[in-house]
Write a protein that binds this DNA or RNA. Sequence first.
DNA 1: TTGTAGGCGTTATCAA
DNA 2: TTGATAACGCCTACAA
Lengths: 329, 329
Amino acid sequence: MKDVARLAGVTIGTVSRYINGKSVKEKNRLCIEEAIQKTEFKLNHIARGLKTNMTKTIGVVVPDITSPYSGLLVETIDKYLYQQGYSIIICNTWGSEELEAKNIDLLLQRQIDGLILYPSGQKMSSLTYIPCDRIPVVVVDIGIAELQCDQVLLDNASAIYEAGVWLKSLNHRKIGIINGTLDYFTSGERFEGYKRFHEDYSMKLDKNIIHNIGYSQSSGYEAIQYMLQLENPPTAVIACNYDISVGVVNAINDIKIQVPEKLSLIGFDDLEIFSIIRPRMSMIAQPVVKMGEQAAKLLLKRIDKDFSGFPEIHRLKTELIIRETTRSI
Amino acid sequence: MKDVARLAGVTIGTVSRYINGKSVKEKNRLCIEEAIQKTEFKLNHIARGLKTNMTKTIGVVVPDITSPYSGLLVETIDKYLYQQGYSIIICNTWGSEELEAKNIDLLLQRQIDGLILYPSGQKMSSLTYIPCDRIPVVVVDIGIAELQCDQVLLDNASAIYEAGVWLKSLNHRKIGIINGTLDYFTSGERFEGYKRFHEDYSMKLDKNIIHNIGYSQSSGYEAIQYMLQLENPPTAVIACNYDISVGVVNAINDIKIQVPEKLSLIGFDDLEIFSIIRPRMSMIAQPVVKMGEQAAKLLLKRIDKDFSGFPEIHRLKTELIIRETTRSI
DNA sequence: TTGTAGGCGTTATCAA
DNA sequence: TTGATAACGCCTACAA
């Protein structure tokens, strides 16, 4: 900038004003523009940040960016924020609360203007290091009830409830579930939906076909195998997340049970890649794009000092997409 | 830091020295540590960067982070760099050269210490905005021959060549290919491998079964359909990237041709998700993790002012993984 | 070992 | 509208 100023024959202050779109005398404007070309001047965002206390950078903390679900989420967030002139720094936590804390600290050092957090852990200890009081924070997917901050969550209970209702309408009475562990936020809620559905329709819970064992492919793979060799196997099964769904599909492939003739199946997370399997899978679809956009939008609102409605807790509806793995019995 | 200094009863310089691991009198150390606790002091990375000219930030520019391939690549890069105390800023270009240029400019403004670039375009115009002369740059996947900078690429020609040799050993003589367009770097090279294989084994090229039409699901879907209704259809087909492979699988599902009985198939990019289809697909596997690590490592080497061997062009080997979609005829 | 002071590239205030 | 100057938070000689 100094160089530009010298070359243009004005002071550094004038150049700064030009850069920031304030009015400058026509003649000076031309000189400055020419000087910028010649010196290949690039504004130093860092220095500006030091002065303005705004880095136009948002921290995004997720457990695993390679999972198709969070990949899509992050991309949506990035897209929205990019349009508004922000960049994002992504941190992976690999599901470790310790790394999460460390990453957040790092982001804070980098003077981020706001944080979008997809929490890894469930423990209350999280509360101490989530910087809700320093900068705007939006929590995504995993609700933290005790936390005074904006949250964008799924309506997890309804998701499973509706799937249950649909299966019941197809005359299924023994509906199995493969789910994450109950101490995890989303799986806890999803199981609540399952229970409520059984209560509302006066159906008994059968613990042989209830597997709250973990969000992983192996969970799906093993649980479905177990259930199908029961004396009284379920006629339908709901897989409660992406990994479990993949595991279930793998098991189905291996044991070669006919779907939907012998077993109806509903998966979770309607990602495009599932299109490669037959029969086409009936799915509970998350509004991932909407979630990302809403989180980003909300964060920007707070950054712009609009604190109306704080804290906002959004609950987004899933959509039940019926394809070929569910049928009436 | 000012606050810390005051509270600890020393000057700001002493605090700075403590932070940077220089020796400080034991008594002062304790005072400072206590003051840091009390004031919840966090180092301002931005301000440090302004002074040191190092932001410990790396820019990563990719066409599309949601594609499983680049997702994995980015993750690997991030992991490696994170361990070395760097953070990355990711920019999506959506395959647009214009956005690529804009993003790079933005990253430069943010004073990144280095850049890993997965180029979108092929045009020479790229050369003007790639900042090889300002900061260390490592180009990944898409080679740019005219560019004086480090590159980590795949041995694309050999990948297809080897697949051809394998199919030939299974007595296939009509081997189809579905590939990106020839102006695109990787698809150009992949087709070279295909041609060289045909030459070396004195096989004639048959343009009916050569489809250099684009890296997309629809390309795969349509091309395979076209080929299979030929009078003289290929007995084996090679799909040259992830999207094409997915499209091919979709088509196979729809037209219900028996694989590998009636058609042998080799896909590209052995991503975990393909495990959900049967028969298990034979694949050309990219060393994605290795690519990411090597790119990151090389970049750090340059950042550390080690310019030995510049410019390094790495060519990584793919691996042919034989599973159930290829068989002898 | 410590304090002092200048400077990194900006923005912002105040006079001119 | 412009110029001069202080300040942002940190690092680093240099002197003490």
